[in-house]
Lab assay of single mutants.
Amino acid sequence: LVRYRTISKIPQITLNFVDLKGDPFLASPTSDREIIAPKIKERTHNVTEKVTQVLSLGADVLPEYKLQAPRIHRWTILHYSPFKAVWDWLILLLVIYTAVFTPYSAAFLLKETEEGPPATECGYACQPLAVVDLIVDIMFIVDILINFRTTYVNANEEVVSHPGRIAVHYFKGWFLIDMVAAIPFDLLIFGSGSEELIGLLKTARLLRLVRVARKLDRYSEYGAAVLFLLMCTFALIAHWLACIWYAIGNMEQPHMDSRIGWLHNLGDQIGKPYNSSGLGGPSIKDKYVTALYFTFSSLTSVGFGNVSPNTNSEKIFSICVMLIGSLMYASIFGNVSAIIQRLYSGTARYHTQMLRVREFIRFHQIPNPLRQRLEEYFQHAWSYTNGIDMNAVLKGFPECLQADICLHLNRSLLQHCKPFRGATKGCLRALAMKFKTTHAPPGDTLVHAGDLLTALYFISRGSIEILRGDVVVAILGKNDIFGEPLNLYARPGKSNGDVRALTYCDLHKIHR
C-alpha cells in the first residue's frame, strides 16, 4: 500500500512540481520508500527539464536528425535550378540546329562534286560548318556529364541527390541515346576521305529529338503553341524528305545512260545542264529549293507536275512521300480545326451564355430598361472574369491554397485601402477568403433606401454616388468604403439613402 501511494504521487509531482519531503505519510521509514524516492526525484528532475525545454521552444527539443539540413553532394545540380533551365534551352537550340543542318550536310555532301578544292585539302579548321559541328559534339558530351550530376524525382516524389543513384537512373534511361548522339564521328573518321560515311553517321544526332519531343509535351495545353509546333514538325519532315529526294537524284545521276532524272530535267529547265562528264548542272541553292518544293507539294497532295519522278527509285520514294503525307494530314492537320476551336472556345461560351440571357429575357418578357441593365451587367461581368467562376475553380483546392490565391487576387485593395494598413498577414488572409466580388454598370442602383444592410462594401474600381431623395450626399471612388460596420450592432440596419454607380464599378463586399 505504501508503495502504491508513493507511485500514485508521481503525476502530481510531474505537473505541480511538489516535493515529496513535505508529505508526512511518505516520510515513514520503510525500505521500499527509501529505494523508490531517489528514482522519483530523478524522474521528476528529468520531466521538469523536458517541460522547461518545451515551454522555452528551444531548438534542442527536436531530434538531432530533424535539425540537420538535407545534404547535397558537391557538384550536384538541382533539376529545378536556373542554371539547369538555361542549359536545357541551350541544348534545345543545338538539337534544332542539328535537326536542320545534319540531314542537309549528309545529303548535299554525298558524292558532291561542286567546283573547288576537296575538304581534305583545305583542312578541318577552315570549314565553318565542321567547326560548328565540333562545338555541338562537345556541348552534347558536356550535357552527358551534367546529367550524371543532376537530381531527379523518383516514384515516391522524392528528390534524389545521391550521385550513385543518379548515375544508375541515367544509365537506365537516356544515357545510350545521348551517348550515340554525342559521338564525334568527324574526329574519329577525319582524314579518311569518307565524307559520305561521316554525313550518314552524323544523322545519329537526330535521336535527341525524342527527348525534345517529350520536353515539349508540357506545352500541349496551349493551343497556339501546339499549332506552332505542328507546323514546325511538318516543315521539318518536309526538309528531311527534300534532303533524301536530292540524295536519290544525286546518286543516280552519274550512272544513268539517259538523262531522265529530276536533276537533269531541272538543269535543262533553268539552262544549267550537266555536261557529258557529269559536272556542271544547277547550283546547290536551286537543287535544295526545288527538292523542298517537290516534297511540300507531295505532302499537301497538290502535285503540280513541273517536278516529277521519272526513275524507279524516284517513283518509289514519291509513293512513300504520299503515304507520309496522308498520315500527316490525319495526325496534324486533322487537329488544326480542334485547336482553332479551342482557341476561340471563350468567344463561343460568351455567345452561348448571351443567347441564354436573351432567351430568358424573351421568355419572361423583361421590360426594355431592365433588359438593357441585365445585358450590360452580363457584358461587364464577362469582360472582368472571362466567364470563369472563381468560386467553382477554387473549390477543388485546399483552404490554405485558397487563402493564398484570394490574398493575391485582392492584393491591390488590401495594400491601398486604409482600414487594412497594419493588419497582420493572417488577418488579411482571413479577410480575403470572405470577400465576394460584384460588378455594376453605370446607372445601376446597388442599394435602395430602406434596404437591409448586411454587408460592408469596398470599391475596387469606378465611382458611385450616394443620394437622399434627389440630393447627392457624397461621391465615392476607388478604395472608399460604404455599408454597415460589421458586428457593431446586434441587428442589421437599414439604408438611409440610395447608392448608384456612376461608372463601371468593381466592388468587394463582406457579409455579416
Rank of each mutant, 00 (worst) to 15 (best):
Y65I: 07
L67W: 13
A69C: 04
I72A: 14
H73K: 10
H79Y: 01
S81R: 10
F83L: 09
W89G: 04
I96P: 01
Y97L: 01
F101R: 09
T102C: 01
Y104A: 01
A107T: 09
F108Y: 01
E112L: 06
G116D: 04
G123C: 01
A125I: 15
P128C: 15
P128T: 14
L129N: 05
D137G: 09
T150V: 06
N156I: 05
N156L: 12
S161Q: 09
G164M: 14
G164E: 06
G164D: 05
R165L: 07
H169M: 06
Y170R: 01
F190N: 12
G193E: 08
S194N: 14
E195P: 06
L197D: 03
R205W: 01
R205G: 01
L207T: 13
V212N: 06
D217G: 05
Y219K: 04
G223W: 12
A225K: 01
F228P: 03
F228K: 01
L230H: 14
L236W: 01
A242F: 01
Y246D: 01
I248Y: 01
Q253V: 13
R259M: 03
I260P: 03
I260T: 04
G261E: 01
W262C: 01
I270D: 01
P273V: 01
S276W: 01
L279R: 09
D286E: 06
K287H: 01
A291F: 01
Y293H: 13
S297F: 01
F304E: 01
V307E: 01
N310G: 01
M322H: 01
L323R: 01
R342I: 05
S345E: 10
P369N: 07
L370H: 01
R371T: 03
R371V: 03
Q372R: 10
E375G: 03
E376M: 06
H380D: 15
W382S: 04
T385V: 03
V393R: 02
K395Y: 09
C400I: 03
L401D: 03
Q402H: 03
C417Q: 10
K418C: 04
T424E: 07
C427A: 09
A430C: 04
K434D: 01
K434F: 03
F435D: 03
H439A: 06
A449P: 02
